[in-house]
Amino acid sequence: MAGAIAFNTDLLARQEKRERANILRLALPASLLVLILLFVPIGWLMSLSFLGADGGLSFENYTRIWTEGAYVAIFVTTFQVSLWVTLICVLLGYPVAYTLNLLPEKISNILMLAVLIPCWTSLLVRTYAWLVLLQRRGVVNSALIDLGLIDQPLQLVHNMAGTVIGMVHIMLPFLVLPLYAAMRAIDGNLLRAAGNLGASPSRAFRDIFLPLSAPGLIAGAMLVFVMSLGFYITPVILGGGKVQMISQRIEASVSLFPTWGPASALAVVLLILTAAFLLLSWIAVRKLTPVETEAQ
C-alpha cells in the first residue's frame, strides 16, 4: 500500500524540475541582454564618475558639482524648465484628451492622428520652425503687432519662454496619449449615476471623472517631466545659449575635458535627483488624492 501512496511522485517531481530548468534556460538570453545593455553601462557610468583627473579614485567630480555655483544653477534651470513644460502640457493636454473622449471613437481616432503626426517629423525641423515663428520679425510677433495687441516685438526666443514653447509642442502627445487611454476606460454610467444621485455636471466631473482620470494624468505628466529633464536640441536652438540645461553641460563636459569623469558625475546626479523627485511626487500624489472613504 505504501507504493500506492507514493505513486509516480518521483517521476512527477523530476518532470517539474526539468520544466523549471527549461524556463530558466529560455529566460537567459533576455536576462543577459538586460544585464549587458542596462546594468553594466550604468554601473560603468557610476564607476567612471569616481575617477579623478589623475586617473585615481576620487570624489572630486562630485565636490565640484556641489561647490561650483554654475552647476547648481544648471540643475535649478533644468528642473524649472521641465516643471513649466509639464505644467503647461497638463493645462493644454487635459482639455484635448477630454474633448477626444467626448467624441465618438471614429472621429476621435482621426483627431488622435492629428496629435500624433507631428511626432513623426524630425524634432530638429520642428524646433527650427519655432525659431522662424517666434523670432523678432517672425509670424507671431508680426501678427500681434498687426492686431494692435503690442507695440514692440516680444522676446520669444533665445530665452526660457522660447525653450518652454518648443518643448511643450514636442511633449504634448506624451501627455495626451496615456491620459486619453485612462479617460476612455472610465465607465460613462458612473457620471450618469453621479447625476442621478444629485451631482451637477461640474460636481460629477470633480468628484468622479477627475479622480478616475488622475492616474493617466500622473503617468503622462511624469513621462513628460522625465523626458524634459534630458532635453538637448530644443534648449540649444531656442534657448540660444541663455538657457543652460544639464544635457548641454554634459555635452560640453565630454567635448572639453579629456576624461569622462565630470560628465558621468553629472549624469549620475541627474539620475538620482530624477528618481528622488519622482518618488517624492508619487508620495505627494498618494497623500493628496486618497481614496474617498466614509468612516463607519
Binding site: 465607465d187 454610467n189 458612473l190 450618469r192 449615476a193 453621479a194 447625476g195 442621478n196 444621485l197 444629485g198 451631482a199 451637477s200 455636471p201 460636481r203 460629477a204 468622479i208 479622480p211 478616475l212 481614496v291 474617498e292 472613504t293 466614509e294 468612516a295 463607519q296
Partner: peptide, 22 residues
C-alpha cells in the same frame, strides 16, 4: 440631478475610487 430619483444601474455603476460607505 434635479429630479430626485434613485436609480439602480444595470452594471451598478458603483464608484470604484470610493469604498462602500463612500
Amino acid at each position: 440631478h434635479k429630479r430626485d430619483i434613485g436609480m439602480v444601474f444595470q452594471n451598478y455603476a458603483l464608484f470604484p475610487h470610493m469604498n462602500v460607505a463612500g
